[in-house]
Nucleic acid binder design. Structure first.
Lengths: 108, 108
DNA sequence: CATGTATATTACTGAATAGTCATATATTCA
DNA sequence: TGAATATATGACTATTCAGTAATATACATG
């Protein structure tokens, strides 16, 4: 047997990771970073988020290790730390779309 | 190119799906259902959640289509609707554990 | 129909957090 | 050093939501 119960700590850690991804704005940021590193100002333009709000979301993403930061002069560049996060998003995205198609069919 | 921006509706839908998974109690429920369908009382025992709280979490899981329900007399059985959800959890679980190992190493 | 059992729902409270504005910090350059 | 720009942070508000207790509903059985 693999386990009887999951440790509360592991449950909390996994839940926390999902929580970071449970915000449209943060998904938008991750998606904007698909093409490679961007600095905050570029991310503002790409996402339409204002500076303070975006900065806070970036701290959350960085806190969970989902993005890496690198300073270059005045600019701070962020990039996706591990592509598996994007794959995760794509998986859920596909599932959501499949569900939507199914719901649409059910209406016929 | 695949897209310039993700539609707000899709972003919201994906975020909503992640949000359902962002609660330790619900992850616990999904994990308890790995072995197959269980009725609510059995889930209470498996998870330690009280009746009202568990029931509410089940409604949330069911609302997102992550679990299916089937009534049998007095009992209502729930089961994982699609094993891909469990795979998703396992993926994140692995990522979280890897991150923890890395953090532990960094302390040496 | 009355009673008992399983599950769902409602109303409530406390805690967490997204968004916003104002301000602080960091870095560059003159 | 002082001004300018980029980013981070603090305080505040409004909203969301998990947990709980009480109550309602659904089903079975006598």
């Amino acid at each position: 047997m693999r386990h009887r119960t999951l440790s509360p700590a592991l449950l909390a850690a996994v839940a926390a990771r999902f929580k970071v991804l449970s915000e449209p704005a943060r998904l938008q940021v991750l998606d904007a970073l698909r093409g490679g590193p961007l600095h905050v100002s570029a991310l503002m333009e790409a996402t339409g988020l204002n500076q303070a709000n975006l900065s806070k979301h970036l701290q959350v993403l960085h806190g969970q290790g989902l993005v890496a930061r690198k300073r270059d002069g005045l600019f701070v560049f962020y990039e996706v730390a591990d592509d598996s996060v994007l794959e995760l998003c794509d998986l859920v995205c596909g599932a959501v779309e499949a569900r939507a198609r199914k719901a649409a069919l059910a209406l016929r």
